[in-house]
Design a protein around this nucleic acid. Structure first.
Length: 461
RNA sequence: GUGGGUAUAGCUCAGUUGGUUAGAGCACUAGAUUGUGGUUCUAGGGGUCGUCGGUUCGAGCCCGAUUAUCCACCCCA
């Protein structure tokens, strides 16, 4: 076989032991919080039927789905005319019937429909799995990355939205983040704004444009709005709402004035107030979350399916895109024929949270230590002598290993050092004869002699 | 899909207006130290200079193409 230069597929990453330990720490912390709020974990397959995924993410999204070529002679059954025309798009369903999952929401919707008779509503689930996108990779964006989704279906209550704010706060705080903002918006407020401008049909272009405010500034947004069919008059009206400042309560009051004539807009404001009211009640015995919450009407996100509340989380400690987002989507399962089921959910961007924590040095040192004690190995005799105690320690739950060959002590200690193993037990002729073990503390360099019982007690405590 | 940068040792990168045998740091191996790591010192191994073509007496360096990769835009987490 020809030797190929080892390389990673574009946009993918290896996770080495230290990285895995840190990633697991994040996932474990998140799971603990999710579970505490009554969410249960599910997993779905890494690939789905292509039909399940296509048409759910828009034309752009469809292009970014990784398709899996059919097995066998996949061109044999393909229509000849499509082949001669090289018509890729219509040809695709003939040569591919499976695709890697693009997100966790659509597989979840499929799951709910298929398992509707065994789940009880409201159904609260979380899911932590990789997803794949044939996107062009760049900083903080990969072709394989993990999503951590928490959703509830079958409950209209805004209590869910309020709990998501608490989940965000609790999870991120537990991970050590101190300063972040949970941005809130509501699709109905955006609809209301479009109504007030008299251009409800331009809702989507409008939100796409104002979503870019912090990126391209007021002039950029204005330019884009004009291109998309808004008048100078509209811009005059829009500008003050777009740039609302101050406490949430003040923003709400101003929005009420502006949107007074729009029933749907007022309902959106109402929803925000209810959610914030719930949050206030739930934090009655703890610190208020006001400083973490902001109302940002430029927040749009995947507007295609959100119908109510919209969330986005940003850290203020380092420069980074959003580290989480979510929202309310009515009719989550309609695309699979189950109508009228509402859902609301949020997602944590684990990869980005990892980068933030790395930069802020928030990982506890204990996550990077695996083995607690290494037994040295000088020859067959000392090797055999160590085995009973080695296994006894493992039996007591202590991560222990023996150097698997007789090598120079220098090498064995270097191994312990590289693996950050805190203790090394030295066993040589001298130790066998006297019946005590030499225990070396790798951090201080100190060495002392202990009998088996004392050694065992020390390492298990 | 659009635009820009980069490509030299396992990794991060130097390499002068084109001029002998292409370098450094880290990592690795060995020794200084036959039972003592993380510090230090010494030595050693390791390169089709991404690939193909062109210019030139001569190309790691200049030109063209190509591939890979990174960054930005669109979009998104």
């Amino acid at each position: 076989m020809a030797i190929v230069k080892p390389s990673l597929a574009k946009g993918t990453r290896d996770f080495s032991p230290t990285e895995m330990e840190k990633r697991d720490y994040i996932f474990h912390t998140l799971k603990t919080v999710f579970t505490k709020y009554g969410y249960r974990e599910i997993q779905t397959p890494s690939f789905e039927n292509l039909q399940t995924l296509t048409g759910k993410y828009g034309d752009e999204g469809d292009k970014l789905i990784f398709k899996i070529l059919n097995s066998g002679d996949y061109l044999a059954k393909a229509p000849a005319d499509l082949l001669t025309e090289r018509a890729s798009t219509p040809l695709t369903p003939h040569i591919s019937e499976k695709a890697l999952r693009y997100d966790l929401t659509v597989p979840f919707a499929r799951y709910v429909v298929m398992h509707q008779h065994e789940i009880t509503l409201p159904f609260k689930r979380f899911q932590i799995q990789p997803v794949w996108r044939a996107d062009r990779p760049q900083r903080g964006r990969y072709r394989e990355f993990y999503q951590c989704d928490v959703d509830v279906v079958g409950s209209e209550s805004l209590l869910n939205e309020a709990e998501f704010i608490l989940i965000y706060h609790e999870a991120l705080t537990n991970l050590g983040l101190m300063d972040f903002t949970i941005k809130l918006n509501n699709r109905k407020i955006l609809s209301g704004i479009a109504d007030v401008l008299g251009k409800p049909q331009l809702l989507v272009p409008m939100t796409v444009a104002i979503d870019k405010l912090d990126k391209i500034g007021v002039e950029g947004v204005d330019r884009e709005l004009l291109e998309r069919g808004f008048s100078d008059e509209d811009l005059e009206k829009l500008r003050p709402i777009m740039q609302l400042e101050g406490p949430v309560a003040v923003k709400i009051d101003q929005l009420k004035d502006t949107l007074a004539s729009s029933a749907i807009g007022m309902r959106g404001i109402d929803e925000i107030e209810i959610v914030l009211g719930y949050v206030e009640k739930m934090t009655a015995h703890t610190d208020p979350l006001n400083r973490f919450i902001d109302l940002d009407i430029t927040l749009a996100r995947g507007l295609n399916y959100y119908t109510g509340c919209i969330f986005e989380v940003k850290t203020n400690e380092v420069t980074m895109g959003s580290i989480g987002g979510g929202g309310r989507y009515d009719d989550l399962t309609g695309m699979f024929g189950l109508k009228g089921l509402t859902g609301v959910g949020i997602s944590f961007g684990a990869d980005r949270i990892y980068d933030v924590m790395e930069e802020l040095e928030l990982f506890p040192t204990s996550t990077v230590q695996s083995t607690r004690v290494l037994f040295s190995n000088f020859d067959k005799l000392t090797e055999l002598y160590a085995l009973p105690l080695l296994q006894k320690l493992r039996g007591a739950g202590v991560a222990a290993e023996i150097y698997p060959a007789s090598a120079k002590l220098k090498k064995q200690l270097a191994y312990a050092d590289a693996k950050k193993i805190p203790y090394v037990v030295l066993i040589g002729e001298e130790e066998i004869q006297s019946g005590v073990f030499s225990l070396k503390d790798m951090q201080s360099g100190e060495q002392r002699k202990l009998d088996e019982l004392k050694l065992f007690t020390f390492l298990t405590s």
